[in-house]
């Protein structure tokens, strides 16, 4: 009997180990394959250069900085709204039908496919609010898509702060806002920010939400002006973005060298990886100075 237990234990452990390994294999395979295929073009010239001949040659700087701007502007829009809504729902909202409706809306919104968000973006921002196809309209669309997940991740970070801390403050006559400001937020802000960065960079890697709201296949670019290179798009301009650029070059089967396509994919993965590792480092730092 004892031997059987040991045997089952060993098998269970190995089966689960295999399941865990199954996760790593595709990640490594995808990264290795893409970077291998992209290796002929990858380099500083490629990153800093401007596409030539409709993406058949040259570099990738305009879509790269476009995606970066997209992340930045979306962040500025969705972070305040998502965080404040999360704080309200977690800290203030009474348990009643109104709150339940909001919660239901948040959950449903999180389940809406990105292409539907894209169409909503066209209707709401591009047409109704008259933003036109622009960086702003695309950022707003990304923001709407991200807010529900942001609310959820904010609430998770907030509820990781033990209830006992809040009660201790209330018992001393601190108001809810004083408690949030002095105890809850300082101890959850890192988790909140981690969620914000992760969610926004994930959304910015998608093609659908920017497809009809502001992404351009190609934009005339002054390659030798540094100012133009660092600040190529304003809020009202159409812009280039990595995800859409990838779709464009991948569609042109014949005239784009293979390495250029994989190069775009590699840079997109790289950018998102860098953004993600920023939040992972932030989380590690915060965990190391956890105060209880």
């Amino acid at each position: 009997m004892e031997r059987r237990k040991v045997l089952v234990e060993g098998i269970a452990k190995k089966v689960m180990l295999v399941a865990a390994l199954c996760l790593i294999v595709p990640v490594l395979a995808i990264i290795a394959y893409i970077f291998y295929k992209a290796s002929p073009v990858l380099g500083l010239d490629y990153l800093w250069g401007v596409p030539e001949g409709g993406g058949t040659g040259g570099g990738i700087w305009p879509p790269l900085i476009g995606t970066f701007f997209l992340v930045l502007v979306s962040l500025c829009i969705c972070a305040p709204i998502g965080i404040m809504a999360g704080i309200y729902l977690n800290e203030y909202a009474p348990d009643n039908w109104f709150t339940r409706i909001i919660n239901m809306a948040v959950t449903s919104l999180a389940g809406v496919p990105s292409i539907v968000h894209a169409l909503f973006g066209v209707g709401a921002f591009v047409l109704t609010f008259g933003m036109g196809e622009s960086l702003l309209a695309a950022s707003c669309t990304i923001a709407v898509m991200t807010i529900p997940v942001l609310i959820t991740s904010t609430r998770e970070a907030l509820s990781a702060v033990p209830m006992a801390f809040r009660q201790a403050c209330w018992n001393m006559g601190a108001t809810k806002w004083q408690t949030i400001r002095t105890i809850v937020l300082p101890n959850s802000i890192s988790g909140i920010l981690t969620g914000v960065i992760l969610e926004v960079s994930r959304a910015a890697g998608e093609t659908a939400p920017i497809l009809f709201t502001g992404a351009a296949a190609s934009i005339p670019f002054m390659a030798d002006s540094l100012g133009d290179k660092l600040m190529p798009y304003f809020l009202g301009d159409k812009f280039m973005a990595l995800s859409y650029h990838l779709k464009v070059v991948a569609d042109k089967l014949n005239d784009v060298p293979e390495a250029m396509k994989y190069g775009t994919a590699a840079v997109l993965i790289g950018l998102i990886f860098i953004l993600n590792s920023f939040s992972i480092v932030l989380r590690m730092y915060l965990r190391s100075r956890k105060k209880w």
Partner: peptide, 8 residues
């Protein structure tokens, strides 16, 4: 009864 030191 349960001691709660605030994270300060």
């Amino acid at each position: 009864p349960l001691p709660v030191g605030l994270p300060l």
